[in-house]
Simulated assay, not measured.
Amino acid sequence: MKKLILGLIVIIGLLVFLNFSRGGKVVKNTVASYVAPTSLIHKEGRTIKTRVKIPDGYTRVLSEEGTFAHYIQNYQLKEADAQVINYDGSPYIFQHGHVGVLEVPVPSNGLQQCADALIRLRSEFLWETNRKNEIGFNFTSGHYCSWSKYAEGYRPKINGNKVTFSKTATANASKENFYKYLNLVYTYAGTYSLSQELKKVHTLSEVMIGDLLIYPGFPGHVMMVGDIIENDSGERRYVFFQGNTPAQSVHIIKNVSDTEINPWYDLKGKTSLETPIYRFSSFEMVRFK
């Protein structure tokens, strides 16, 4: 009985924390995360594609090698029991909402939050595929900040919503400097700027692995499509992963609203979406250029 009471106290405490951790948004299904079945999880799988099994009647949407979709679908995961870790090295208070943790380092500066983690994945893909000149993002002000100009030594001078760039640093195209550039982007970009900058995906049939499900705001939230399956009728299901605030491990989320297909999500007819720790009151789909 004492253990049961203690367990209830812990759950209530988590609910209070989670309800206030997103600006007062009510998050349903948090308790359900503890008991959500994970029969579609292959614990030995060490990529997104091999960690999550396919339900009967579906086939996986395959991605072409060399594409961003292929890069994401085959992204490396930590061991199955890996915890979500905060930027300061402490375990996140809620460890029952995920089924996989991506091998994405979390800087100790706390800057790499939800949108930032996905910006990093896109940037590292472009870096690794020798498309460095395509790395660039808009600040919330709308001003474009490219890696190429940063590497040449250009730095922004920010005065309210006015941003100007001038050459104030020595040219440096190293990987270490690249991460300094990303820290700058993390500081001045976010869900709002991504929503304004990126291409809209208007229909579910167009959604690709690597697309973003986003609620732009201050704060907003965003997740990335990590995998897609489809049945003979053309109905699709999606796996999502996310970073978070505070900055923490990027992780594949459970689906506690539809435990029969957990962690796959059905977006058909949806205008809002429940996840283990966040409720999207509305959302849109966007794609990196």
Rank of each mutant, 00 (worst) to 15 (best):
V201C: 03
I135E: 00
S233H: 11
Y144W: 14
L111I: 11
V201R: 04
K167M: 04
S205P: 00
R120V: 05
Y150I: 07
Y186A: 00
T140L: 10
Q113G: 00
K162H: 12
H221W: 06
V99N: 10
T164S: 12
L118V: 08
E206D: 15
I158W: 08
E152M: 10
V106K: 02
Y238E: 08
G226D: 13
S233N: 13
A151K: 04
G153R: 08
S146G: 13
L121R: 11
N133L: 15
H221P: 08
E134M: 06
N177V: 01
L198E: 08
A189G: 03
P105V: 03
S123V: 06
V101H: 02
Q112F: 01
A117F: 03
M208V: 01
S148G: 13
F178D: 00
E124W: 04
M224A: 12
N109F: 03
A117W: 03
E128T: 13
I135N: 01
Y92Q: 04
N130Y: 07
D232M: 09
K175Y: 01
E103T: 12
D116P: 00
N109C: 01
I119R: 06
K167A: 09
R236G: 09
T168R: 10
G97T: 01
T191F: 13
Y144N: 09
N138Q: 09
C145M: 14
T140S: 14
E235N: 14
M208D: 10
V201K: 01
D227K: 12
R155V: 15
E152R: 07
E134A: 03
G136K: 11
N177T: 01
T170N: 10
A189M: 06
S146Y: 15
I229C: 06
G100N: 01
G97P: 02
A117D: 05
Y179Q: 04
I119T: 07
Y188I: 02
V104Q: 07
N231M: 09
E206M: 11
W147H: 02
L212S: 03
E206R: 10
M223S: 08
E128H: 10
V239H: 03
P156I: 12
F137K: 04
N161C: 06
G100Q: 01
A117V: 10
Y181K: 00
P219D: 13
K180Y: 07
Y192C: 09
W147E: 04
S166E: 14
Y186F: 07
L126H: 09
E176M: 03
Y144H: 14
V101F: 00
R131S: 11
G190Y: 06
E124R: 12
P105C: 01
N177D: 06
L213Q: 13
H96T: 09
V239R: 06
N109I: 03
V101E: 05
C145I: 12
F137T: 00
Y181W: 07
K167N: 10
H143K: 15
W147G: 04
A151D: 05
E124Q: 13
V106M: 08
V101A: 02
F139A: 11
N161M: 12
I135G: 02
L126I: 09
V201D: 02
E152Q: 15
Y179E: 05
V101Y: 09
V104H: 03
A151T: 09
I229D: 06
